[in-house]
């Protein structure tokens, strides 16, 4: 069974607009009307859970939820067929807003809330539940930011517990949370480079810098490192090989980048869980991610189209 942990889930609120109007005074002409909107459960681990459920993979989503928005997250996950096991906390699950302007959807405007703090007591309660769930786990995905006031060491603790229980660990995080998690030597790591193109202080701005930083991580025992290099290209470093995955698509075709990165990781995990070859898993993941970006919907689910998209994905050894 696959477990995803999203300590700081969110409601993803998306607005599609013609053009975002900005003004210095309050006047009707500065009102931006949404052509349409969408609300769905979000957060990196949750997006992966939804993708896996749509692919028919049983999985359990864990983390912390609270308030009205917490109920929306849990309800959405259940409707998608994901098993939920969240700790309810004081405060409200955060809301992240995305504004997509017509003709500029590949450059979305993102407003993310920080989230509600989680107490040590709530963490302890979560750890007991998590330990219980690990007895059924083959893969554990630790993904996304940590809630305010939570020790940056949390992912290291969770990763070590999972490894000890015999599960393979996937980490998709950034900053201190990622740095600490790396000490537990996860199986697969995907740094979240949306805000800062760095990992453990090392820049991830060019191919050579990504490879240099990646090699240092792989030397610690991490088996697979996936780093987003360009919107349509990732670099994958393993103990034996370095690959560049490229999608031959135009970024102007992209309609919604939110969650596409998580679908990429979900696709890789889906294939590896089935015991497929890593190269195929990487091509499948990239195809699923690209298809999500090309779709209005946040998370794609069409297996046939993913397989068609794989024709545009190349994997080159560097």
């Amino acid at each position: 069974m696959i477990i995803t942990v999203t300590p700081n889930p969110a409601i993803d609120k998306m607005y599609w607009v013609d053009r975002l109007k900005m003004g210095r005074v309050v006047r009707e002409e500065f009102l931006t009307r949404a052509i349409r909107s969408d609300t769905s459960a979000g957060g990196k681990g949750i997006n992966i859970s939804i993708f896996l459920a749509r692919m028919g993979v049983e999985n359990v989503a864990m983390g912390f939820v609270g308030g009205h928005t917490g109920h929306v997250v849990v309800r959405d996950l259940r409707e998608e067929g994901v098993t939920t096991n969240f700790v309810w906390v004081n405060g409200e699950t955060r809301t992240n807003v995305t504004v997509l302007e017509r003709e500029r959807a590949h450059i979305p405007i993102l407003i993310d809330e920080e989230g509600s703090p989680v107490s040590q007591e709530e963490i302890s309660y979560f750890l007991r539940r998590y330990k219980r769930m690990l007895k059924r786990a083959t893969w554990v995905v630790l993904a996304g930011s940590l809630p305010p006031k939570v020790d940056a060491d949390l992912y290291r603790v969770l990763a070590e517990m999972a490894t000890e229980a015999g599960a393979k660990v996937v980490v998709s995080a950034r900053g201190n949370a990622l740095t600490h998690a790396l000490r537990a030597v996860p199986y697969l790591v995907k740094p979240d480079t949306r805000e800062h193109l760095s990992m453990e202080g090392a820049p991830l701005t060019t191919r050579s810098k990504i490879i240099a930083a990646g090699r240092r991580i792989i030397e610690t025992g991490v088996r697979i490192l996936v780093v987003s290099h360009e919107v349509t290209g990732d670099i994958v470093i393993t103990q034996d090989t370095i690959w560049e995955i490229k999608a031959r698509v135009k970024t102007t075709q992209f309609k919604n980048l939110v969650g596409a990165d998580d679908v990429l990781l979900g696709g890789i995990l889906y294939m590896m869980d089935k015991g497929e070859d890593l190269k195929e898993a990487l091509r499948f993941g990239m195809a699923a991610g690209i298809l999500s970006a090309e779709s209005d919907k946040k998370i794609c689910q069409n297996m046939e189209k993913i397989e068609e998209e794989m024709a545009h994905i190349s994997l080159e050894r560097i």
Partner: peptide
């Protein structure tokens, strides 16, 4: 069924139970 695993262990306190029942509906 609703695929939810919200549950508690027997040493959890009544206070915590009421909080979770209330918040989780």
């Amino acid at each position: 069924m609703t695929k939810d695993l919200t549950s508690m262990e027997k040493d959890a306190l009544v206070r915590g139970l009421i909080f979770t029942l209330d918040n989780a509906g």
